[in-house]
């Protein structure tokens, strides 16, 4: 790893942060709706939580890609 290292670092950071931002953006809408539903019917907390966290997997994909990018750099 020499002079290109920072580029690889940036690539990994972008992969992770952009996917995290996107997941947050998606969760915003679901979370709002889930809270709305909960206000009507409190038992919906469990279901609301499940629906809200579904986009979170996007972050994990971002993480995987970031790890792979760093792995590429090591190779």
């Amino acid at each position: 790893m020499a002079e290109g290292a920072w580029l690889i670092g940036m690539a990994a950071a972008l992969a992770f942060s952009v996917s995290a931002a996107c997941a947050a953006y998606a969760e915003k809408f679901i979370g709002t709706a889930a809270i709305g539903a909960m206000a009507e019917k409190e038992e919906l907390f469990g279901k609301g939580l499940v629906l809200t966290v579904i986009p979170e997997t996007i972050v994990i994909f971002g993480l995987v890609v970031a790890i792979l990018i760093i792995g590429l750099a090591a190779a």
Partner: peptide, 9 residues
Amino acid sequence: VGNIFSYFR
């Protein structure tokens, strides 16, 4: 696949 990746967390 997504499910398994999900455990990376």
